[in-house]
Amino acid sequence: MKPGRLKQILLLTDGCSNHGEDPIAVAALARNQGVTVNVIGVLDDRQHSKPQGLDEIESIAEAGGGISQIVYQKSLSQTVQMVTRQAMTQTIQGVVNKELQEILGKDQTIEELPLDKRAEVVEVVDDLGETCDLEVLVLVDTSASMNHKLPTVKDALYDLSLSLNARTGSNQFCVYVFPDTKKTIKKMIDWTPELEKIHGIFSKISSGGYTPTGPALKEALYAFTEKPFFHSMQDGVDPYEETGL
């Protein structure tokens, strides 16, 4: 069985979008294009109450077929890797469920399987999570309130690469920030298998006062689909298709 390639956008933000198109709609579009959208809301360690507008975070991830989590800075590292892994499992389970339904009929999902069959299927899902290839586009909100959180974000991204590179499957990461006055988002790191050289990437950032989450997500999606990646062209419309059992 040949493991497939999973594609994810990981959005790190701390507030509500206030400019441009609806990020929830863009996330739904991304999902349709085979790209999962995960969102992490980063709170200040001293922040006590949840700021308004963070409900949007959950809605974006839901529409994007991904996972959302709101966390304090100090648990950012562990959350980033956990969310990414959980979303991978979720996607793979979705593919496996689809296959099961095709073979066994409607209402047949992993959860419904008799126990002995379930015991075998979960091992297959686990195997795929370990061996599949993964592409993560990290999209960092660098608007004013995020500024002092960026060193933590940098640590968390390094940690993410540490976690994922322990897997058997290969990984590709790239990092974009927004808002950017010229092109909405700005590429900070091009596709690379390791996020070790991210030292100082956030130092030259001029932070804007608005948060165009929707347009930024859309640009990120374009960056994915236009990626001149030697093998991603053969994937066809649904990149999950080749994850078939």
Binding site: S77, Q78, R85, E130, D159, L162, S163, L164, N165, A166, R167, T168
Partner: peptide, 21 residues
């Protein structure tokens, strides 16, 4: 040879920069 999926930072060598996961 596989990736550690569950860990707790204090006990994790990756967290301390002393090795892989």
């Amino acid at each position: 040879g596989r990736a550690i999926k569950e860990y707790t930072e204090f006990y994790d060598r990756g967290y301390w920069g002393l090795g892989s996961r």
